[in-house]
Design a protein around this nucleic acid. Structure first.
Lengths: 186, 186
DNA sequence: TATTGTTATACTCTATAACTATA
DNA sequence: TATAGTTATAGAGTATAACAATA
């Protein structure tokens, strides 16, 4: 059996940092499996959550928040739009911008996503009593805060395996003629 | 600011499962940065650790243990061999097999790796007192055990970004003539 | 001229599947 | 015929950089 020569600390299972990395990858993998039933990848779930959280943001803003280049964000959002989960609305003040919003369908799926997340939480924390789970959340929360992590933002979207079933989208039909808006600037 | 609509549970930072995934990715990323100074990727460090832990195993066994296909394992091990950290020894009983061992250089680097892991542990757990760190390790260890994780084996080697500076290796010179070994079977 | 959104291209990484040597 | 190791190849996914529309 493996005795972990470099796990980073005391104990047969390695230090807390190694356990965090190990359990984090495990938890992320299990969550991915779970929401696969909703036909969502973790990154897609993250975008739904982000759009629900702060609706109306531009694609550029969202791409920055997720740490992904705009050229990657576009086909990424395309999928969710094709599935009717989000919609792009032109900003009449600045017609370069799309404001992203959840559709009713997207709101409904988000509710399912919340259920999945709750079930996931139960599944991962099985070994702990309610009191121990609170202890764990408190300890992890303090570590996360001290390490400067943004609540609710997973730092790994950049690396997470993307959806491989992405088909090229059909060309977007030309926009409705430019409703002439008298006020000019941004 | 993001208020985390689907983090999986109570608290402003999401449930324990989300915190685990978030902190796990963070810890893994920081560790990767740290050992970049030793010119090692996390996957390479994992292989060094594995070979040190159970020397003499075949490439096939190691590839299986790491969950990577043999065709990917070969160039992966090539790099470490070119750098003189591991060596392949023919098994005279079954000349199809290579037994992998650490060189002296590899042992020395592993010692540095242990130091890096210890420093990493300190860096990640800054926010906690020694007693709290023990609590955290205990809680995480119980979760890991219940979830069936193998101590010391990170489940994410399959997905971790590989080294992009891999140059094609020069062809291996033909093996020394077959020391005729009277006993035939495996 | 700068910025948003988009598309094209070139590059990297990967797994599948042949292939060689040995059993 | 089966297996360890290796190599070739074809496919997927990515970022860089050009591009169009709008400011």
């Amino acid at each position: 059996m493996s005795t972990n020569a470099v796990g980073g600390g005391p104990g047969p299972q390695g230090g807390a940092a190694f356990l965090l990395a190990q359990l984090g990858a495990h938890a992320a993998g299990r969550f991915a499996e779970r929401i696969d039933g909703l036909d969502l990848t973790p990154a897609q779930a993250g975008l739904l959550r982000l759009v629900a959280d702060t609706p109306g943001r531009s694609q550029r803003e969202l791409a920055d928040a997720l740490g992904m280049p705009p050229s990657r964000f576009v086909p990424f959002a395309d999928e969710l739009e094709e599935r009717g989960l989000i919609e792009r609305r032109r900003n009449p003040r600045d017609r370069r911008l799309y404001a992203l919003h959840l559709t009713d369908s997207g709101v409904a799926l988000l509710a399912e996503l919340r259920e999945a997340a709750a079930a996931h939480e139960q599944q991962i924390c099985q070994a702990l009593s309610p009191d121990e789970r609170r202890q764990l959340r408190t300890l992890l929360g303090r570590v996360a805060e001290q390490q400067g992590l943004t609540p609710g933002i997973h730092p790994g979207y950049r690396w997470i395996r993307p959806d491989r079933t992405h088909r090229p989208r059909d060309p977007r039909p030309p926009e409705t003629p430019p409703t002439p808006d008298p006020n000019g600037s941004a």
